[in-house]
């Protein structure tokens, strides 16, 4: 992908066409009024964002209301990071910001100016999977796989924080990642094994 990602996603297109439709049905008085035109323009005003994602620098512009999650998925087209609840309740959107795990659905992209983001796509070293990815495969740490990118990002951080010293500790510090398939015992196995085998740095 080039650094200035201009591809228009299907959702961007839908958003814009909805906005145009809204203008088309607006009363003539509203469209004429200069003040309202300005208001509509302001709604779409984008601001510049410099951000590093998986080791690559991007200089783009975003609407202030774009969450980090939507930015990653819809502007960078990195679809590994998942949207589960969109309200901070499930952990599917977990990414690392400057090495710390967060829920990207509750952060605005613009709040991450100058930050270094790592997503699930940035974890492997070329073709070589990250030890945590290998452990999830080995231990069958998933069923449908929807929660898995978030689980893996969270698990890597959990070990780096020093919070994987027992199965109970792992359960407590992984509680922000919900798995509707209930793969929890195997997820804990995968984390305990990775922890035993050594370092997991991004």
């Amino acid at each position: 992908m080039d650094n200035n990602c201009k591809n228009e996603g299907r959702r961007d297109f839908l958003k814009k066409s909805t906005a145009l439709a809204a203008l088309a049905v607006a009363s003539p008085a509203l469209v004429k009024a200069g003040e309202n035109d300005e208001k509509i323009a302001a709604l779409f005003e984008k601001i510049p964002l410099n951000i590093e994602v998986n080791g690559k620098a991007f200089s783009l512009s975003v609407e202030p209301r774009t969450t980090l999650l939507d930015f990653i998925r819809e502007q960078l087209h990195l679809f590994g990071t998942k949207k589960g609840c969109d309200y901070g309740q499930c952990g599917a959107c977990t990414v690392h910001v400057d090495g710390e795990r967060i829920n990207s659905c509750l952060s605005l992209a613009v709040m991450n100016e100058g930050k270094k983001i790592t997503t699930i796509e940035g974890l492997a070293n070329g073709e070589e999977l990250h030890p945590m990815q290998k452990a999830f495969i080995k231990h069958d740490g998933f069923q449908c796989g929807y929660c898995t990118p978030g689980q893996i990002m969270s698990a890597v951080a959990c070990i780096n924080e020093g919070h994987a010293n027992s199965r109970d500790e792992v359960r407590e510090f992984m509680s922000g990642n919900i798995c509707r398939c209930g793969a929890y015992p195997n997820i804990v196995d995968a984390i305990m094994q990775t922890k035993k085998e050594g370092s997991t740095h991004d």
Partner: peptide
């Protein structure tokens, strides 16, 4: 409170 991710924010 909350989860490890939320406490980081």
């Amino acid at each position: 409170g909350a989860s490890a991710q939320l406490r980081n924010m």
